[in-house]
Design a protein around this nucleic acid. Structure first.
Length: 646
RNA sequence: GCCGAUGUAGCUCAAAGGUAGAGCAACUGACUUGUAAUCAGUAGGUUGCGAGUUCGAUUCUCGCCAUCGGCUCCA
């Protein structure tokens, strides 16, 4: 009957009666900022009784775990407010997310942003009332009966999926919710929150299910942290690539072709420079560039499987010689029309098949920058990062099974080279593994997943597993980079494919003279150039490295007197291969400098009479406050010294 | 596609059931300029598109289109 337990708190070891609460154990250290605790590494409420010997650590509101608790508790507070204001609304789930939380409701009518201030007000009232948050454990069956009585059918459904015999609910005032916890001790701890947006969301993320009404919010330990976060969001809005693209004159969108950018001359410069950069790498890494047709008979997509799996995302067109001229997307549709290619892979198999291949041809690396069209659903379009037409730095590698690991490793080296050259210091790598629907045996999948993992390890790359997210035809490596709002976008991808070689009956002759099936590796390093440019603009705020800047040098004349000198310099720089322009407008220098700053021109070359007389220039760098007087030769040397990716 | 919101001059934003206004940009002129906005003038809009209600709609209603935030999907 040991009624005592040994508790370790920091350096101190104490013996207390079994059942003593965490709060009492931490007594004395319990500031207002301590909102939960870790007991042997597990997050628990301060009110949790200690029944075993354990190590207890306080969790402060400002720690990342503490913040999580606060946000989760705030989600509960919001649900309580919503149910108080809108009786009959059912609750579903309300997790924390990267920068806050959300809660999905089944309301009688969907919420709108106008509802948010009212809900926030109610939340403040409930927080002010400082309701005690209590944890109650009960048998799952009891809980099911309880939520059934309350008419909370979503909670009942959740409970039916929980294997545990006992579950916990949290009660605050007259409101309760099924929850694992932990939570803050009372609602008064929640003082810095804001509801940010409403959205529709499907129950369990499945569009066949009911559409719920989701409210997003965020919460912090104190008001200052909340303000800071909101200010950060505002700053991120300034970096939105759609705004930068308009301001810098890079591209535009028009409803006449939703999701398809018009590249303006300056945007085209960036696009072409990225393509040229990849082409240089292709020579070094052994890729061969091709162009294949843009439009194919549907027969191609029928063989490749796109007709079955991707047709809804394809732009289809009737056979122009068909008098009826109708797109038949029905089961026989592949026999009559054409489709605009959404991917390059099927076309590349024709290049592979054009000759009788042997092991000596492998690996065969075929690259293509052609434009790909995908009929993305209207609701998903998003600037350059989600478009209906794109160019990928796409390549397909046809290789033997035993070459997979080397090829993947080589492409990963390339990925690292490119991302570091373009200033993305920390791309995230994920290994997407076998999905539920898949071709091939588990053993094959295990082997190919292991090959990808091993190639990652060879490159000393840290990666996470993205379980079940592989393509149905093979596992893949996905590479993500964040935009200004820290939303992660998949850019690069390396995918193993055993399916297409099968479907197109690709073969090669082995050294032993037998026939074997090659494997295809689909890979893109920048991914879609559109998305990459979008992310790059947000990453840099539009301040591109010198080699990528659409306009590299702007020569600013001080007055008409130096106009000809400015023109002469511009011509000289242009002849040397720099993208240089002269601003000889009848304006004050301050005005011209401001415009060059806004256009994000890396080199501003100011020439007044002093400089003209001495054949010098005054160089001002973008985002620089000082200018430097130097000779023309020195200016050229400075421009030439700007780093270029190899 | 689904949920919510938005759509006024090239851009950023006002106003209003009785035919719309500012700043910047554009154009014209003056100023000849020293490192993030010189001054003045001119022009620019069937208020996203189409119906309906009304004596009258750009404002109210409905449909469509596009955009934004999400869901789903994905490079």
């Amino acid at each position: 009957m040991s009624a005592e337990v040994r508790i370790t708190v920091g350096e101190e070891v104490r013996t207390v009666a079994s059942g003593t609460s965490v709060r009492d154990v931490l007594d004395g250290k319990l500031g207002r900022d301590i909102i939960a605790a870790r007991v042997d590494g597990k997050l628990v409420d301060l009110s949790r009784p200690l029944e075993r010997s354990a190590t207890v650590e306080p969790v402060s509101a400002s720690s990342s775990e503490g913040l999580d608790v606060i946000r989760h508790s705030t989600a509960h507070l919001m649900a309580q407010a919503v149910q108080a204001l809108y009786p009959g609304t059912q609750v579903t789930i309300g997790p924390t997310i990267e920068d806050g939380f959300f809660y999905d409701f089944a309301p009688s009518r969907p919420f709108t942003v106008e509802d948010l201030p009212k809900i926030e007000q109610k939340m403040r009232e409930l927080a002010k009332a400082d309701l005690k948050v209590e944890r109650v454990e009960l048998a799952r069956d009891e809980a099911i009966a309880l939520f059934e009585r309350m008419g909370e059918k979503y909670k009942v459904e959740i409970l039916q999926g929980i294997p545990d015999e006992r579950v916990s609910i949290y009660r605050q005032g007259d409101w309760l919710d099924l929850c694992r916890g932990p939570h803050v001790p009372s609602t008064g701890y929640l003082c810095a929150f804001k509801l940010t947006s409403v959205a529709g969301a499907y129950w369990r993320g499945d569009e066949r299910n009911a559409m719920l009404s989701r409210i997003y919010g965020t919460a912090f330990a104190d008001k200052e942290a909340l303000q800071e976060h909101l200010a950060m969001l505002e700053l991120a809005r300034q970096r939105d690539h759609r705004k930068i693209g308009r301001e810098m004159g890079l591209f535009l969108f028009d409803p006449i072709s939703p999701g398809q950018p018009f590249y303006l001359p300056k945007g085209m410069i960036i696009f072409n420079l990225l393509v040229e950069y990849m082409r240089r790498l292709y020579r070094r890494y052994g890729f061969n560039e091709v162009i294949t047709p843009q439009i194919f008979k549907n027969e191609l997509f029928h063989v490749s499987g796109h007709w079955e799996n991707f047709r809804d995302n394809m732009f289809l067109t009737p056979d122009p010689e068909d008098r009826e001229a109708r797109v038949d997307t029905g089961p026989e549709g592949w026999r009559v029309g054409y489709g605009v290619k959404p991917m390059n892979c099927p076309g590349h198999t024709f290049i592979y098949r054009a000759e009788k291949r042997s092991y000596r041809d492998l690996p065969l690396r075929i690259a293509e920058f052609s434009r790909l069209h995908r009929a993305e659903r209207s609701g998903v379009l998003h600037g350059l990062t989600r478009v209906r037409v794109m160019s990928q730095d796409d390549a397909h590698i046809f290789c033997a099974e035993e070459q997979i690991e080397d090829e993947v490793a080589m492409n990963l080296t390339m990925v690292r080279e490119v991302y570091s050259a373009l200033g993305f210091t920390e791309p995230e790598f994920k290994l997407a593994t076998r999905p539920e629907q898949h071709l091939g045996t588990e053993a094959q999948w295990r082997t190919s997943e292991e090959k990808l993992a091993s190639a990652l390890r060879r490159n000393l790359i840290q990666f996470e597993i993205n379980p079940g997210e592989g393509a149905f035809y093979g596992p893949k490596i996905e590479i993500y980079v964040p935009d200004a709002l820290k939303r992660k976008w998949q850019v690069a991808t390396i995918q193993l494919d055993y399916n297409l070689p099968e479907r197109f009956d690709l073969k090669y002759t082995t050294s032993a003279g037998s026939e074997a099936r090659p494997v295809m590796i689909h890979r893109a390093i920048l991914g879609s150039l559109e998305r990459f440019i979008g992310v790059l603009l947000e990453h840099t705020g539009g301040v591109l490295p010198f080699w990528l800047a659409p306009e590299q040098v702007r020569v600013l004349s001080l007055s008409e007197k130096t106009e000809s000198y400015a023109r002469e310099l511009t011509e000289l720089l242009s002849k040397l291969g720099f993208r240089a322009h002269a601003d000889v407008r009848n304006e004050k220098l301050g005005f011209k400098v401001r415009e060059a700053e806004l256009a994000k021109v890396p080199f501003m070359v100011v020439v007044g009479e002093r400089e003209a007389a001495a054949r010098q220039v005054s160089l001002r760098l973008l985002r620089g406050s000082k200018s430097e007087v130097m000779s023309v030769e020195e200016l050229v040397a400075r421009a030439q010294a700007e780093p270029l990716p190899s």
